[in-house]
Every structure is written in C-alpha cells, then in structure tokens.
C-alpha cells in the first residue's frame, strides 16, 4: 500500500510511450535514460523526449501461469518482448489475442490498460499493453 509518486512520475512514459532520443547519435531509448549508453558524456543535456508509435513486432513471449498477486485475475497471461519500430525493445503484456495467434514475428500495437491497483482504496495504475494486429 501507499504507492503514489513513484507511479505518478512515470505517467507520460507509461501512458503515451514517451521515450528519450539521444541528440548525439539519434538512437531512441525506452525506458527513457538521462545518459546515452553509447555516447556517454557526449549525450549530456542532449536527451530529448519523443513519443513512440506503439507499433512493433514480438521478439519473444511467455505464457505466465505463476503470477504475482496483482495479476492473478488475468492468469494465464502473455508477457512479451516487443521490438518497437523506433528501435527500443520493451517488456509488456499481450492482451485480447488468442494464444494460438501469438508468435514470434507477429505485428502488435499498443493499447491503454490498467496494470494494477493499489488495493481497493489505493490508486489505479495505468499503462501500455499490446495486442496483435488484426490481419
């Protein structure tokens, strides 16, 4: 209980996939980073916000049966690595897609979902998940 500012601080990134672009090498990082791991000090002060499209490709996935408490109602759920079109790879759930349609290489798009809630009286935490594109 009692999570608040830690969640609130990341709203832009989790709601809208706001990433950071290195002004030096133009690589895009998500989650956002204050220093580019390629350019190091050359990137200081040059990391700027860019909004990602939410489009990407599944690079790996798992069906999670043994889950933390927050995800019990969704068991089994699919967790995937998604290569976003702008470059970064992120970890996110895949929803609304039958298991037999989830494969490495499938195209996905981001959707806005509830991630957890801090008990019945705490804040609701929203963020991105992904769904396989309708072919």
């Amino acid at each position: 209980m009692g999570e608040l500012s830690r969640i609130w601080r990341e709203s832009d990134h989790r709601y809208r996939l706001v990433a950071h672009e290195c002004g030096n090498c133009k690589r895009i990082f998500f989650p956002p980073r204050d220093v580019c791991p390629i350019c190091h000090r050359d990137s200081i002060g040059k990391m700027r916000e860019v909004e990602l499209s939410g489009k990407g490709t599944i690079s790996s996935f798992t069906v999670v049966h043994d889950s933390p408490r927050a995800f019990k109602r969704q068991r089994p759920y699919v967790l995937a690595l998604i290569d976003l079109d702008e470059g970064p790879t992120i970890t996110a759930q895949i929803v609304d897609t039958p298991l037999d349609q989830i494969e490495i290489g499938k195209r996905v798009h981001s959707v806005f979902r509830r991630i957890h809630e801090d008990g019945p009286g705490g804040i609701i935490q929203y963020g991105y998940k992904f769904a396989v594109d309708l072919s």
Binding site: T62, P68, L79, T91
Partner: peptide, 29 residues
Amino acid sequence: SEILDKTSTLLDSEWEAFFGATPAAVAAL
C-alpha cells in the same frame, strides 16, 4: 504468491516487474 512480488524486485521493477514480469517469465523469454 507474495514471494513472487518479492523475487520480482530482482528485475527492473519499473519496466519489467511493473508490467507482470517475474524472474521465471524473463528466463522464459
């Protein structure tokens, strides 16, 4: 299952565990 809440803190808690990743799930990926 509270143990999974705890072991998942071994991951990046904001960008992996927050979204439902567990150590086993990451190994499975």
